[in-house]
Design a protein around this nucleic acid. Sequence first.
DNA 1: CTGAAAGCGCTTACAG
DNA 2: CTGAAAGCGCTTACAG
Lengths: 330, 330
Amino acid sequence: MNDVAARAGVSLKTVSRVVNGEPGVLPATAERVSRAIADLGFRRNDSARQLRTGRAAGIGLILEDVSDPFYSVLTRAVEQVVRDNDCLLLTGSCDDDPDREQELAMALCERRVDGLVMVPAATDHSYLAHEIRAGVPVVFVDRPPINLAADVVLADNVGGARDGVRHLINNGHRRIAYLGDDLAIFTARERLTGYRSALAGAGIPQDESLVVMGRAEPVAVRAALDRLLSQPNAATALFCGNNRLTTVVLRELAGRVDRPALVGFDDFELADLISPGLTVVAQDPAGLGRVAATLLFDRLAGLSDAPRRVVLPTVLIPRGSGEAPPPATF
Amino acid sequence: MNDVAARAGVSLKTVSRVVNGEPGVLPATAERVSRAIADLGFRRNDSARQLRTGRAAGIGLILEDVSDPFYSVLTRAVEQVVRDNDCLLLTGSCDDDPDREQELAMALCERRVDGLVMVPAATDHSYLAHEIRAGVPVVFVDRPPINLAADVVLADNVGGARDGVRHLINNGHRRIAYLGDDLAIFTARERLTGYRSALAGAGIPQDESLVVMGRAEPVAVRAALDRLLSQPNAATALFCGNNRLTTVVLRELAGRVDRPALVGFDDFELADLISPGLTVVAQDPAGLGRVAATLLFDRLAGLSDAPRRVVLPTVLIPRGSGEAPPPATF
DNA sequence: CTGAAAGCGCTTACAG
DNA sequence: CTGAAAGCGCTTACAG
């Protein structure tokens, strides 16, 4: 900026005015400055600006894995809001590793981002209390924070799972298995609650042998399916707690003749093209991202209520796999 | 840092030493400083550090759209390399808008990122020459830069398309249509070249009525398919130039009885589960991201050859849709 | 309409 | 092993 000032024959402050489009510079002066900027290929140094203003014009996004379609769509939505607010987005995947989450969050705070949107992995977020007090708003998405009062935007996991399971019940099923993620994960617990609630609502007794929680690994899923579908009182329908599990289940089911009815939580790109079409409880990942980011910027603009909890509805999309009736009993 | 120094009864410099893990601090002193840091909840301000050191410890990634699976997988790979180098990632989608690309690139440069990885959208990248000269390396991915000498990492578009079309030829097809993206897009041109090369190699005459270039819009695709599949000398096989087109085509084909053989460029999550399985020419989006980011850090570490052009191989994955023979002629 | 001075919070280069 | 001074490139607050 000094060089530009020298070349244009003005002071530093005048260059600053031109660069920032502040009023009160004679057109002729501004013109000279602009030319000097172009000649020198000057580009304002944002770190200096940040240091002085205290504003990074950047927000951080932490999630499990950008390459997962659910999160990549969410990321895109956050990106859009961030852009509308003339900010830049800093991102990081933490692979559900609590330490990595904290590492990322701290790195972003050291960088003095204006705020944070995060899909939490950790089991204790009290480490963020100090940052929030220091004026860095944090909005959680998809899962709530633990030991911390902060904004959170969630999908209606209980209601969505209940709808999905109820749909199977309405199609005549009473032996419905639930395959879900590890219970350590908030959404897995919520969806299991929805499953139980649907059964209870229909007066169907809970059978713990029909509930399988764990990672989406082909071998484990195959073993579970073998058991569920061949045990004396076999399951006639499956409800899958998330898209990764649904994928593995679909693949394992591909070879089998008597396929159970199936409803999955989370929608897929090609879900309508497989045969039968996959019936799903669709979440709104873009909505989650958009609402969370918008709330963050509202906080940044001064909104200071108590932490909010926003729940977004899910939608049941029947495509065939969830409408198959149970086999006739003999 | 001043507060920490005061509380620990040491100088600023000593605090800096502790924070940065520099040697030459008595354990007892370091201990006092650490306690002061913890008590005050001190977090180093990276903008100040950046200003002084000139290093952002951050790199920028610009691409078309993170929510596209191809790019989200690429993003994840870049992220991984960035993390291994103790950097943070700044991202932005430009929706194939040249102005937006430049806007993002400039914003990232003002922020003094250490380097840039980009899937270009613009038709002129000379605006980056100054930045590169100023020491900010830029690596292009998926498409080469225009009017600029810079590193680029590409998929083997020509070879991949040639393999895909040749595969159809080997299965007996001679009337093979090519549906590709707009010719303004580099990869679309390359893949068309591969298509032509495969035909030429088999001595099959080029028929321009079988080549359709355009956006992946259902209405346009349907019209093209109606024409291609019903014209006197109808196409018996289709080669789709990218995943978005393939999706639309699959959807349009879903209702039809006489389905042509089909090979798509780009792999899909559920490509093996649709029926028939989708035969694809798979790119390696993670490889593209990894190689590009690694090259960027090599540049940052001082590598100073001439700009490189790295081409990554593609793989043909037969799954059924590309192996169907043409209908018997009468 | 324009500018001189101070300072944001660190690190660098040097001295002791 | 520890510290005092200068400076990175801007903006803020003020003066003229």
